[in-house]
Structures are given as C-alpha cells and as structure tokens.
Computed example of a mutant assay.
Amino acid sequence: MFTPVILAGGSGSRLWPLSRQAFPKQFLELDGQAQGTMFQRTIARLDGLEHGDPLVVSNERHRFVVAEQLRLAKRQSSRIILEPLARNTAPAIALAALEATRDGGDPVLLILAADHHIPDEQAFQAAVASATIHANAGRLVTFGITPTHAETGFG
C-alpha cells in the first residue's frame, strides 16, 4: 500500500489563455472527451490500486478549485496542503512527507504531477504495483526517466 501525493501547483502560464494564475492547466479538461480534468484523471488513475487517502499539495489560491475538483471526482480528502507561495517540487514533496509521517508511520509515497497525460492507464497501474514492491524494500523508484545525475531543477 502507498500514499498518493498529488502535486497540483502551477502558475497557469503555459497554456494561456486557457489556463491562468487562478485556474492552471491541471484543472482543465483538455482533450474534449469529457473524461475529467487532468487533476481528476490523476486521481482516477489510482482506482484498482491499494492506497491510502490522497494527499494534495497546491497553492493557497487554488483551495476552492481543489476542493471542487475532489468533489467532482467523488473523492473525499481532508489531506490538502496549501502553500502560501509556490516553492517548486522538492519543498512540496518535503511538506507532503512531513504530513504523511505526522502520525509516526513511514508510508511509501507515490508522487504524482496533476498535469501528466498518461494514455495507457493499465501500464501505469502495473508499473506502480511493481514499483511498490521495490519501494517497500527501501528502494527509491522513478518513472519515465533513467536518472544519470542529480537534477536540482526537478526536486
């Protein structure tokens, strides 16, 4: 079992004028197929996997948007961390880790960006299930890239 951490920050500048500061791209439905927003699809991708309640890290300005997105996704979560200022990936993950371990536990965290497009959800779920085994053994697992060096630009 793992704890999903959904990083839902963003400045809303990349897809302007569709996205904007008050409503960044992860809260948009971009493909026109009525399957939900990128944020909602990130949560739905977890269906069928054994996990705890998602922990969402977002900007304080998006508090009501996040709550509404969770409601529309038919998910309840009281585990929302609101950053007063965006400080990038590493601080957001650190906040989530502190919150996830507040009760003294040491959960495996699955860090998810709320704005990724993952068309093969079955492959994603199989990769997460396999990675969970390795993470439970104390290993650090990454998806999508083969790390060759430390990269401070991405946490």
Rank of each mutant, 00 (worst) to 15 (best):
P91V: 00
D103F: 00
G9Q: 12
Q33P: 00
P54Y: 10
G144W: 07
I145K: 14
A150S: 11
P147D: 07
G138F: 03
K74M: 11
L112G: 04
A137D: 15
I111G: 10
A127Q: 13
T101N: 13
N136P: 00
S13Y: 07
L98F: 06
A129G: 10
A100N: 04
Q69N: 13
R87A: 08
L30Y: 03
P91T: 02
G153I: 04
R63P: 12
P17R: 01
R41Y: 02
T146I: 10
S11Y: 15
L82K: 01
T89R: 04
L46W: 06
T132L: 15
L70E: 13
R63C: 11
S77Q: 04
R41E: 06
F143K: 02
S13M: 15
A129M: 00
E83S: 08
E83M: 14
A67G: 05
D53H: 08
A150G: 07
H62D: 10
T148K: 09
F2P: 07
D103Y: 03
V57S: 03
L112M: 12
F23H: 06
R61K: 12
E83F: 02
V66K: 11
A97V: 00
L85F: 10
T148Y: 06
E121I: 11
R71N: 12
A94E: 06
G48P: 13
E50Q: 13
G144T: 07
E151I: 14
T152I: 08
A113S: 11
F64T: 13
M1Q: 12
P17A: 06
S11F: 05
R63Y: 10
I133L: 14
T142P: 07
A97C: 04
F143Q: 00
A100V: 04
E151C: 12
G10Y: 10
F124C: 12
I111S: 09
R139T: 03
H62N: 14
T89G: 06
G138M: 05
R79V: 01
E151W: 10
I93D: 01
P84E: 11
R20Y: 12
A137R: 08
H116A: 15
G36K: 03
H51G: 10
A96E: 01
I93L: 01
K25L: 13
A131L: 12
